[in-house]
Nucleic acid binder design. Structure first.
Lengths: 130, 130
DNA sequence: GGTTGCCTTGACGCCGGTGGCAAGGTCTAG
DNA sequence: CTAGACCTTGCCACCGGCGTCAAGGCAACC
């Protein structure tokens, strides 16, 4: 399988695959003419990468998952390093949720304040009109 | 007030103030020698900018708030444009929270799956050992 | 006049994952 | 032989809010 086919089957671009390779995530053999040649297993690797990226992982976080797949596991998340990353990410997401809740509260407060101000101004205008 | 003093009083850097100026958020008069000269009102403007940035707003989102302050309002969020941005941001934050909740669920599922797999493997090893 | 400390504009770097283009090699079909 | 569809490496651009350095002008004090 050449890079174009892998890109298409994985739903990404050749540019992206080469980028993953320079960052040590995807591996390719080379044919006599220098073309990258991939086996079927790389397809699963790339899909794993894409799935984790979509969830919000960075490439560095993904490395243990790829190593886990390469170690022969059917799933990339069953190895201790992967689990550690999953736990860390879960904590990060929890922190993010907390932060967004705080921001949300702040926004609601400011909105309420603005609307109260507007109504007060409106009342004052009515009183003035009388 | 020169730029250094404003930066210090607003808790930011001169670089940042000039950046805000190029983006139309902060205004300065110029003294005879070309130095930027700020009045006290700009301090409030800069503080408003910083507060909104800290909440997660982008500079473009902040523009209406600054305009509102310049229009003579004691607070930047009481004008219609500001309120519109507040509402939009609130919706964005809600969407972000939802997305993070989905990611969180995904992470928990994968963690649970990994741990189940590990325990199963552990059981199998014990059976094999017998 | 020299030093110090403020100010000015301008320009590059960062981060992370890609897109896009250039200039060239390779394979296949007509 | 040629066209076109692949492939190669390498480098610039992007986003956003700055940090940081360069090269120079201005103010004030010794």
């Amino acid at each position: 399988m050449l890079i174009g086919e892998l890109a298409e089957r994985a739903g990404t671009s050749t540019r992206t695959l080469r980028y993953y390779e320079t960052h040590g995530l995807v591996r390719a053999a080379r044919s006599a003419n220098g073309y990258r040649v991939y086996d079927e297993a790389e397809l699963h690797v790339v899909r794993e990468i894409r799935a984790l990226l979509a969830v919000g992982f960075g490439l560095d976080d993904i490395r243990p998952f790829v190593a886990c797949l390469r170690a022969g596991n059917a799933s990339g998340h069953v190895c201790p390093d992967s689990v550690a990353v999953l736990r860390r990410k879960l904590a990060e997401v929890d922190a993010g949720i907390d932060r967004l809740h705080a921001v949300r509260q702040e926004l609601r407060d400011q909105l309420a304040q603005a609307i109260a101000h507007r109504e007060e101004t409106c009342l004052r205008l009515r009183r003035t009109a009388r």
